[in-house]
Design a protein around this nucleic acid. Structure first.
Length: 114
DNA sequence: CCGATGACAAGCA
DNA sequence: ATGCTTGCCATCG
């Protein structure tokens, strides 16, 4: 009873990720909170890893960890593709971490309250 | 069944 | 800032 359907959860994550603005990024935990499952950040990461972003029109490159670090870059291949996509949006990255993270960070909660 | 692991996160020393 | 610990949940061997 207390279990949301796995597919529903995945779709809820997709919905949030798809509305992350260009040039901004959010975190696994922030997404988990936004869909009312604050302790499911690891699952959000798992879902991103399997979402096949390019094919499904999901800007997974805009999802990083709570410190702004590109902990999931491996899923984009060995050519720093995740970093390239972020840089193409004007985001600066140094040592796998987004520069000015507090400023770049987009909190989905703010959008949902609208 | 159990322990390890993983695109996590927060607290603490 | 750095590293460790704990809490969290699904998947695997």
């Amino acid at each position: 009873m207390h279990h949301i359907d796995k597919e529903e959860f995945k779709q809820a994550v997709y919905e949030i990720v798809r509305i992350i603005p260009y040039g901004r990024a959010t975190s696994y935990g922030a997404i988990a909170k936004a869909i009312s499952y604050p302790n499911m950040s690891r699952m959000v990461g798992r879902i991103m890893g399997e979402c096949d972003s390019s094919k499904n029109n999901i800007p997974a490159h805009r999802v990083v960890n709570s410190e702004g670090r590109l902990s999931g870059k491996a899923a984009f291949g060995n050519n720093g593709e995740m970093q390239k996509q972020l840089e193409a949006e004007g985001i600066i990255i140094v040592n796998d971490k987004i520069k000015h993270w507090k400023h770049i960070f987009w909190d989905p909660i703010e959008e949902i309250q609208l």
